[in-house]
Simulated assay, not measured.
Amino acid sequence: MNDFATTATRWAIRIMLMLVGLVFFVCLLAVASAFALLWAVRALWAKLTGQPVSPWGVRMGPMSPFAGWQTVYRSGAEWMAQSSGAADAASGRAEREARTRRGILPGAGDVTDVQPREVHES
């Protein structure tokens, strides 16, 4: 009797997992069919109105991997432009480049809550 219960339980679990997989597959098939139907209606409407049919694609918007770098680069450039001013832009550029080469960050001279110390290069 114990062997029968074990075998019945295993088959019941297998059947349940098979049904869950079948339901998942049918749901995915329904979603894909809905997208295909929506695209076909969209293409038909574009043909009827004389507009070109444009494919759907991933747009490089605010979630593009390059947007983060562009944002950081832009904000750094704007910050440097605001801190240096327009009058001393030409003379300040050479000084900023020299400070960057020495490892001094822009705006480090404005910090007042720390004690400056010598930089030892090794």
Rank of each mutant, 00 (worst) to 15 (best):
M1C: 04
M1H: 10
N2T: 14
D3N: 08
A5P: 00
T7R: 12
T9F: 02
R10S: 10
R10V: 11
W11A: 13
I13V: 15
I13D: 13
I13Y: 04
M16L: 06
L17V: 07
M18P: 00
V20F: 07
G21K: 00
L22S: 13
V23E: 09
F24Q: 08
F25C: 08
F25E: 04
V26T: 14
L29N: 06
A30Y: 02
V31G: 02
A32E: 13
S33A: 09
A34R: 12
F35D: 07
F35P: 00
A36Y: 02
L37N: 12
L37P: 00
W39Q: 10
A40D: 14
V41L: 15
R42W: 09
A46H: 11
A46Q: 13
A46L: 03
K47M: 14
L48P: 01
L48E: 14
L48A: 14
G50V: 01
G50K: 01
S54L: 14
P55F: 01
G57V: 04
G57D: 13
V58S: 12
V58E: 14
V58K: 11
R59G: 15
P62C: 00
P62I: 09
P62F: 08
M63T: 14
S64Y: 02
P65K: 00
F66N: 02
F66K: 05
A67R: 05
Q70Y: 09
T71A: 10
T71V: 04
Y73W: 12
R74C: 10
R74L: 12
S75N: 15
G76H: 02
A77H: 10
A81L: 02
S83V: 05
S83G: 12
S83N: 14
S84P: 07
G85C: 03
A86F: 12
A89Y: 15
S91C: 12
R93Y: 14
R93Q: 15
E95G: 05
R96Y: 11
R96L: 11
T100M: 03
R102N: 13
R102S: 13
I104E: 15
I104F: 09
L105Q: 15
P106R: 04
P106L: 02
P106V: 03
G109D: 15
G109R: 05
V111S: 04
T112R: 11
D113V: 06
Q115Y: 06
Q115C: 02
P116V: 01
R117F: 09
E118K: 11
E118H: 01
V119D: 10
H120K: 10
E121D: 06
E121H: 05
